[in-house]
Design a protein around this nucleic acid. Structure first.
Length: 224
DNA sequence: GACCAGGCACATC
DNA sequence: GATGTGCATGGT
């Protein structure tokens, strides 16, 4: 039942927005850096920060780790929270270089429940960042939950308002097949919907493409 | 000028 | 366990 609703939502998002081709990056390492930089930050700001790093050929673990903090902060400044994000990038890089020699292959070789635990143990990497890394950099079948997902699915009464990360994630992983490719597109489509319709105060919200459904069980047309 | 954005850690109750 | 707060830039 829930499964059918989730499938229906996916189909409508896909027909409305099309393939999202996530994650936009040239390498798995760039995905990881972007995942940390985008914490509570619009992607357009992250792009500026990534461009600064790319211009200096710093999107390599050892080179980035060797960069002095003040210099890193200066380069990622457009992404906001630059002091905190410098510390978070450095703490991930230490974990990545010490434990895996900066090798994506070695990191990816760790089996899933354990790999997620290890990422979460890194200071500055919480559930969403860990899952973004797992799904979009390492291609593991993990569903990423973000603020949009919680907002949209609670407005549509598929989860209770204020539900925690793990609870929301369960909704998807218990009712959908664990397919990396599918999870990739689904989360990206949710973000596409969120950006276009689901800001906290957005008049377009009432015209949500998910509303007015006759057969999906989704009935709300107005949200606040 | 206010509000928001693809969170997280830490303090306090 | 829930709730509040600091962190910061750039776009609308």
């Amino acid at each position: 039942m829930i499964n059918r609703q989730l499938q229906s939502i996916y189909r409508r998002l896909y027909s409305r927005f099309g393939a999202q081709k996530w994650w936009p990056a040239d390498s798995a390492f760039e995905v990881i850096v972007g995942a940390i930089l985008t914490q509570n930050t619009g992607w357009s700001n992250v792009e500026k920060a990534l461009a600064n790093l790319k211009k200096r050929r710093l999107l390599q673990p050892r080179r980035l780790y060797a960069l002095p903090d003040e210099e890193m902060a200066r380069l990622i400044r457009p992404a906001g929270y630059y002091n905190i994000k410098t510390a978070r990038l450095k703490s991930f890089l230490k974990f990545f270089l010490d434990g895996y020699g900066g090798s994506i292959q070695k990191l990816s070789a760790v089996k899933l429940p354990l790999l997620r635990e290890r990422l979460l143990a890194v200071k500055g990497i919480g559930p969403e960042t860990a899952d973004s890394i797992l799904l979009y950099a390492l291609h593991k079948p993990v569903f990423v939950i973000d603020a949009y997902t919680k907002r949209i699915f609670s407005r549509h009464r598929l989860i209770r308002e204020g539900a925690g990360y793990d609870q929301v994630q369960e909704l998807f992983t218990r009712n959908l097949k664990n397919q990396e490719r599918f999870f990739n597109e689904y989360h990206a489509l949710i973000v596409a919907l969120g950006k276009n319709y689901c800001a906290k105060t957005n008049p377009k919200c009432g015209g949500c493409p998910l509303a007015f459904s006759r057969n999906s069980g989704i009935m709300l047309s107005k949200f606040t």
